[in-house]
Protein backbone atom coordinates (compact mmCIF):
# COMPACT_ATOMS: atom_id res chain seq x y z
CA UNK A 1 0.00 0.00 0.00
CA UNK A 2 2.76 2.38 0.88
CA UNK A 3 4.33 1.90 -2.52
CA UNK A 4 1.10 3.15 -3.98
CA UNK A 5 1.15 6.26 -1.84
CA UNK A 6 4.75 6.75 -2.74
CA UNK A 7 3.93 6.46 -6.42
CA UNK A 8 1.11 8.97 -6.15
CA UNK A 9 3.40 11.44 -4.44
CA UNK A 10 5.94 10.97 -7.17
CA UNK A 11 3.42 11.52 -9.91
CA UNK A 12 2.25 14.72 -8.30
CA UNK A 13 5.88 15.74 -8.09
CA UNK A 14 6.29 14.86 -11.74
CA UNK A 15 3.38 17.06 -12.69
CA UNK A 16 4.80 19.98 -10.76
CA UNK A 17 8.17 19.38 -12.33
CA UNK A 18 6.68 19.35 -15.78
CA UNK A 19 5.15 22.70 -15.11
CA UNK A 20 8.39 24.21 -13.87
CA UNK A 21 10.73 22.45 -16.26
CA UNK A 22 8.73 23.64 -19.20
CA UNK A 23 8.14 27.06 -17.73
CA UNK A 24 10.92 28.39 -19.86
CA UNK A 25 9.85 26.44 -22.91
CA UNK A 26 7.81 28.20 -25.54
CA UNK A 27 4.18 28.57 -24.75
CA UNK A 28 2.67 25.85 -26.79
CA UNK A 29 5.14 23.24 -25.53
CA UNK A 30 4.21 23.98 -21.95
CA UNK A 31 0.54 23.97 -22.68
CA UNK A 32 0.82 20.75 -24.58
CA UNK A 33 2.72 19.02 -21.82
CA UNK A 34 0.27 20.05 -19.17
CA UNK A 35 -2.86 19.35 -21.07
CA UNK A 36 -1.52 16.03 -22.17
CA UNK A 37 -0.91 14.94 -18.60
CA UNK A 38 -4.16 16.39 -17.44
CA UNK A 39 -6.10 15.02 -20.36
CA UNK A 40 -7.67 18.26 -21.45
CA UNK A 41 -7.42 17.54 -25.10
CA UNK A 42 -10.37 19.68 -26.11
CA UNK A 43 -8.76 22.81 -24.83
CA UNK A 44 -5.64 21.83 -26.69
CA UNK A 45 -7.45 21.45 -30.00
CA UNK A 46 -8.72 25.00 -29.70
CA UNK A 47 -5.27 26.27 -28.95
CA UNK A 48 -3.50 24.62 -31.83
CA UNK A 49 -6.08 26.15 -34.12
CA UNK A 50 -4.85 29.59 -33.05
CA UNK A 51 -1.17 28.80 -33.58
CA UNK A 52 -1.52 28.67 -37.39
CA UNK A 53 1.43 26.52 -38.21
CA UNK A 54 2.05 25.85 -41.85
CA UNK A 55 3.85 22.59 -42.61
CA UNK A 56 5.89 22.92 -45.78
CA UNK A 57 7.04 19.58 -47.05
CA UNK A 58 9.97 20.13 -49.37
CA UNK A 59 13.13 18.65 -50.80
CA UNK A 60 16.59 18.72 -49.30
CA UNK A 61 17.93 20.90 -52.14
CA UNK A 62 15.84 23.92 -51.14
CA UNK A 63 17.15 23.68 -47.59
CA UNK A 64 20.76 22.68 -48.27
CA UNK A 65 21.17 25.49 -50.81
CA UNK A 66 19.94 28.01 -48.23
CA UNK A 67 17.01 29.28 -50.32
CA UNK A 68 14.40 28.55 -47.65
CA UNK A 69 16.35 30.49 -45.05
CA UNK A 70 15.91 33.53 -47.27
CA UNK A 71 12.29 33.06 -48.36
CA UNK A 72 10.57 31.87 -45.18
CA UNK A 73 11.35 34.93 -43.02
CA UNK A 74 9.89 37.14 -45.79
CA UNK A 75 6.73 35.04 -45.92
CA UNK A 76 6.35 35.03 -42.15
CA UNK A 77 6.70 38.78 -42.11
CA UNK A 78 3.93 39.24 -44.65
CA UNK A 79 1.54 36.57 -43.39
CA UNK A 80 0.35 35.46 -39.95
CA UNK A 81 1.71 31.93 -40.30
CA UNK A 82 4.57 30.03 -38.76
CA UNK A 83 6.20 27.97 -41.50
CA UNK A 84 7.62 24.59 -40.52
CA UNK A 85 9.79 23.40 -43.38
CA UNK A 86 10.33 19.64 -43.36
CA UNK A 87 13.19 18.92 -45.75
CA UNK A 88 13.01 15.34 -46.94
CA UNK A 89 13.38 13.48 -50.23
CA UNK A 90 10.69 14.30 -52.78
CA UNK A 91 9.27 10.76 -52.39
CA UNK A 92 8.53 11.32 -48.72
CA UNK A 93 7.47 14.91 -49.30
CA UNK A 94 4.84 13.79 -51.82
CA UNK A 95 3.71 10.93 -49.61
CA UNK A 96 3.05 13.42 -46.82
CA UNK A 97 0.40 15.04 -49.00
CA UNK A 98 -1.43 11.78 -49.60
CA UNK A 99 -2.13 11.40 -45.87
CA UNK A 100 -2.70 15.11 -45.35
CA UNK A 101 0.36 15.36 -43.06
CA UNK A 102 1.56 18.55 -44.74
CA UNK A 103 -0.19 21.75 -45.83
CA UNK A 104 1.87 22.80 -48.80
CA UNK A 105 4.57 21.18 -50.95
CA UNK A 106 7.57 22.46 -52.89
CA UNK A 107 9.04 19.58 -54.87
CA UNK A 108 10.75 18.71 -58.15
CA UNK A 109 9.42 15.47 -59.60
CA UNK A 110 6.83 16.56 -62.19
CA UNK A 111 5.85 13.03 -63.26
CA UNK A 112 5.11 11.86 -59.70
CA UNK A 113 3.47 15.19 -58.89
CA UNK A 114 1.12 14.81 -61.84
CA UNK A 115 -0.13 11.54 -60.33
CA UNK A 116 -1.11 13.40 -57.15
CA UNK A 117 -2.77 16.18 -59.12
CA UNK A 118 -4.83 13.65 -61.08
CA UNK A 119 -5.79 11.79 -57.91
CA UNK A 120 -6.93 15.05 -56.31
CA UNK A 121 -4.43 14.77 -53.45
CA UNK A 122 -3.04 18.21 -54.23
CA UNK A 123 -4.62 21.30 -55.76
CA UNK A 124 -3.48 24.72 -56.93
CA UNK A 125 -0.44 23.19 -58.69
CA UNK A 126 1.91 25.95 -59.86
CA UNK A 127 5.31 26.02 -61.53
CA UNK A 128 7.83 28.08 -59.55
CA UNK A 129 11.39 27.82 -60.73
CA UNK A 130 13.94 25.55 -62.31
CA UNK A 131 17.56 24.81 -62.25
CA UNK A 132 19.24 21.95 -63.97
CA UNK A 133 20.71 18.61 -63.20
CA UNK A 134 24.33 18.05 -64.12
CA UNK A 135 26.56 15.02 -64.20
CA UNK A 136 29.54 15.52 -61.93
CA UNK A 137 32.49 13.16 -62.00
CA UNK A 138 36.20 12.76 -61.30
CA UNK A 139 38.38 15.27 -63.14
CA UNK A 140 40.29 12.36 -64.68
CA UNK A 141 37.02 11.29 -66.38
CA UNK A 142 37.75 7.53 -66.46
CA UNK A 143 34.70 6.74 -68.60
CA UNK A 144 35.47 9.53 -71.06
CA UNK A 145 32.02 11.11 -71.01
CA UNK A 146 32.95 14.78 -70.91
CA UNK A 147 30.74 16.88 -73.12
CA UNK A 148 28.52 14.01 -74.28
CA UNK A 149 24.73 14.01 -74.33
CA UNK A 150 23.22 12.72 -71.12
CA UNK A 151 21.92 9.48 -72.57
CA UNK A 152 25.22 8.61 -74.22
CA UNK A 153 27.08 9.50 -71.05
CA UNK A 154 24.94 7.14 -68.95
CA UNK A 155 25.39 4.38 -71.52
CA UNK A 156 29.15 4.83 -71.49
CA UNK A 157 29.34 4.82 -67.69
CA UNK A 158 27.45 1.54 -67.67
CA UNK A 159 29.50 -0.01 -70.49
CA UNK A 160 32.79 0.87 -68.87
CA UNK A 161 31.58 -0.26 -65.42
CA UNK A 162 32.61 3.11 -64.01
CA UNK A 163 31.66 3.93 -60.44
CA UNK A 164 28.32 5.77 -60.22
CA UNK A 165 26.75 7.06 -57.01
CA UNK A 166 22.96 7.10 -56.83
CA UNK A 167 20.79 8.75 -54.17
CA UNK A 168 18.69 5.61 -53.94
CA UNK A 169 16.16 7.40 -51.73
CA UNK A 170 13.18 7.96 -54.03
CA UNK A 171 13.99 11.68 -54.16
CA UNK A 172 13.34 13.87 -57.19
CA UNK A 173 16.96 13.50 -58.28
CA UNK A 174 16.80 9.74 -57.85
CA UNK A 175 13.58 9.55 -59.86
CA UNK A 176 15.23 11.60 -62.60
CA UNK A 177 18.26 9.32 -62.67
CA UNK A 178 16.13 6.16 -62.78
CA UNK A 179 14.13 7.67 -65.64
CA UNK A 180 17.31 8.05 -67.69
CA UNK A 181 18.43 4.47 -67.01
CA UNK A 182 14.97 3.26 -67.89
CA UNK A 183 14.95 5.10 -71.20
CA UNK A 184 18.13 3.16 -72.03
CA UNK A 185 16.65 -0.15 -70.88
CA UNK A 186 19.53 -0.56 -68.47
CA UNK A 187 19.31 -2.03 -64.97
CA UNK A 188 21.95 0.14 -63.27
CA UNK A 189 22.57 -2.28 -60.40
CA UNK A 190 24.05 -4.74 -62.91
CA UNK A 191 27.06 -2.43 -62.89
CA UNK A 192 29.07 -3.65 -59.91
CA UNK A 193 30.46 -0.19 -59.27
CA UNK A 194 26.94 1.29 -58.91
CA UNK A 195 26.41 2.62 -55.37
CA UNK A 196 23.15 3.53 -53.69
CA UNK A 197 23.68 5.84 -50.74
CA UNK A 198 20.10 6.27 -49.52
CA UNK A 199 21.13 9.75 -48.32
CA UNK A 200 20.62 13.39 -49.25
CA UNK A 201 22.35 15.16 -52.12
CA UNK A 202 25.09 16.71 -50.00
CA UNK A 203 26.14 13.41 -48.43
CA UNK A 204 25.99 11.63 -51.78
CA UNK A 205 28.24 14.27 -53.35
CA UNK A 206 30.79 13.80 -50.61
CA UNK A 207 30.64 10.04 -50.96
CA UNK A 208 31.06 10.29 -54.73
CA UNK A 209 34.11 12.51 -54.28
CA UNK A 210 35.66 9.98 -51.88
CA UNK A 211 34.93 7.05 -54.20
CA UNK A 212 35.69 9.02 -57.37
CA UNK A 213 32.30 8.14 -58.78
CA UNK A 214 30.05 9.88 -61.29
CA UNK A 215 26.67 11.11 -60.16
CA UNK A 216 23.62 13.07 -61.17
CA UNK A 217 23.09 16.13 -58.99
CA UNK A 218 21.17 19.36 -59.04
CA UNK A 219 23.34 22.33 -59.82
CA UNK A 220 22.40 24.27 -56.70
CA UNK A 221 23.63 21.69 -54.22
CA UNK A 222 26.79 21.07 -56.26
CA UNK A 223 27.68 24.77 -56.43
CA UNK A 224 27.09 25.18 -52.72
CA UNK A 225 29.50 22.32 -52.01
CA UNK A 226 32.01 22.51 -54.85
CA UNK A 227 34.77 23.78 -52.55
CA UNK A 228 34.64 20.62 -50.47
CA UNK A 229 34.78 18.21 -53.37
CA UNK A 230 38.33 17.38 -54.33
CA UNK A 231 39.05 16.39 -57.94
CA UNK A 232 35.42 16.54 -59.00
CA UNK A 233 34.03 18.64 -61.82
CA UNK A 234 30.99 19.06 -64.04
CA UNK A 235 31.32 16.64 -66.94
CA UNK A 236 27.90 16.92 -68.61
CA UNK A 237 25.60 19.95 -68.52
CA UNK A 238 23.22 22.02 -70.58
CA UNK A 239 21.23 19.11 -71.98
CA UNK A 240 17.53 19.89 -72.23
CA UNK A 241 16.73 16.47 -70.76
CA UNK A 242 18.33 17.66 -67.53
CA UNK A 243 15.90 20.45 -66.69
CA UNK A 244 14.92 20.30 -63.00
CA UNK A 245 11.54 21.96 -62.49
CA UNK A 246 10.12 22.87 -59.09
CA UNK A 247 6.41 23.15 -58.43
CA UNK A 248 4.51 24.43 -55.44
CA UNK A 249 1.09 23.00 -54.56
CA UNK A 250 -1.31 22.89 -51.67
CA UNK A 251 -2.61 19.70 -50.13
CA UNK A 252 -6.30 19.13 -50.80
CA UNK A 253 -8.00 20.62 -47.70
CA UNK A 254 -10.80 18.06 -47.95
CA UNK A 255 -8.43 15.47 -46.51
CA UNK A 256 -8.73 16.72 -42.94
CA UNK A 257 -9.90 19.86 -41.18
CA UNK A 258 -6.47 20.27 -39.57
CA UNK A 259 -4.99 21.29 -42.91
CA UNK A 260 -4.16 24.98 -43.02
CA UNK A 261 -5.53 25.66 -46.48
CA UNK A 262 -5.58 29.46 -46.17
CA UNK A 263 -1.89 29.44 -45.26
CA UNK A 264 -1.12 26.97 -48.04
CA UNK A 265 -2.89 29.11 -50.60
CA UNK A 266 -1.02 32.18 -49.38
CA UNK A 267 2.27 30.32 -49.72
CA UNK A 268 1.52 29.25 -53.30
CA UNK A 269 0.63 32.86 -54.21
CA UNK A 270 3.76 34.04 -52.42
CA UNK A 271 6.09 31.71 -54.34
CA UNK A 272 4.81 32.79 -57.75
CA UNK A 273 4.62 36.51 -56.93
CA UNK A 274 6.90 38.83 -58.89
CA UNK A 275 8.69 39.93 -55.76
CA UNK A 276 9.74 36.40 -54.79
CA UNK A 277 10.50 35.40 -58.35
CA UNK A 278 13.07 38.18 -58.55
CA UNK A 279 14.53 37.20 -55.18
CA UNK A 280 14.92 33.64 -56.46
CA UNK A 281 16.71 34.99 -59.52
CA UNK A 282 19.19 36.92 -57.40
CA UNK A 283 19.73 34.15 -54.85
CA UNK A 284 23.27 32.80 -54.80
CA UNK A 285 24.60 35.15 -57.50
CA UNK A 286 26.86 36.95 -55.12
CA UNK A 287 28.27 33.88 -53.43
CA UNK A 288 28.60 31.49 -56.36
CA UNK A 289 28.86 33.87 -59.28
CA UNK A 290 25.73 32.41 -60.87
CA UNK A 291 22.14 31.95 -59.76
CA UNK A 292 21.21 28.62 -58.18
CA UNK A 293 17.59 28.73 -59.35
CA UNK A 294 15.84 30.44 -62.23
CA UNK A 295 12.34 31.93 -61.89
CA UNK A 296 9.86 29.99 -63.98
CA UNK A 297 6.30 30.83 -62.98
CA UNK A 298 3.51 30.50 -65.52
Amino acid sequence: MNTKKFLTTFYIGLLLLLLTACGSANNDTTEENQTETENKSEEQAEQSAEVKDLILSTTTSTQDSGLLDVLIPIFEEQHPYNVKPIAVGTGQALEMSVNGEADVLLTHAPASEQVLVDAGDVINYKRVMYNDFIIVGPSSDPAGIKGLEVVEAFQKVFDSSAAFASRGDDSGTHKKELGIWESLNITPSENEAYLETGQGMGNTLQLAAEKQAYLLTDRATYLAQADNLADMEIVVEGDEALLNIYHVMQVNPDKSDIINSAGAEAFVEFMISDEIQSIIEEFGKEEYGQPLFFPYSE
Binding site: D28, N33, N99
Partner: peptide, 20 residues
Protein backbone atom coordinates in the same frame (compact mmCIF):
# COMPACT_ATOMS: atom_id res chain seq x y z
CA UNK B 1 1.28 12.01 -33.78
CA UNK B 2 0.43 12.11 -37.46
CA UNK B 3 -2.58 14.24 -38.28
CA UNK B 4 -4.28 11.04 -39.34
CA UNK B 5 -2.97 9.23 -36.23
CA UNK B 6 -4.63 8.78 -32.84
CA UNK B 7 -3.10 11.94 -31.30
CA UNK B 8 -3.16 13.98 -34.50
CA UNK B 9 -5.56 16.59 -33.16
CA UNK B 10 -2.94 17.70 -30.62
CA UNK B 11 -0.71 19.01 -33.46
CA UNK B 12 2.40 17.85 -31.64
CA UNK B 13 4.44 16.51 -34.54
CA UNK B 14 7.44 18.72 -35.37
CA UNK B 15 7.44 20.39 -31.94
CA UNK B 16 10.00 20.11 -29.12
CA UNK B 17 7.35 18.18 -27.15
CA UNK B 18 7.46 15.43 -29.75
CA UNK B 19 11.24 15.18 -29.32
CA UNK B 20 10.79 14.97 -25.54
Amino acid sequence: LWRSGPLGHLALLFTPTAIV
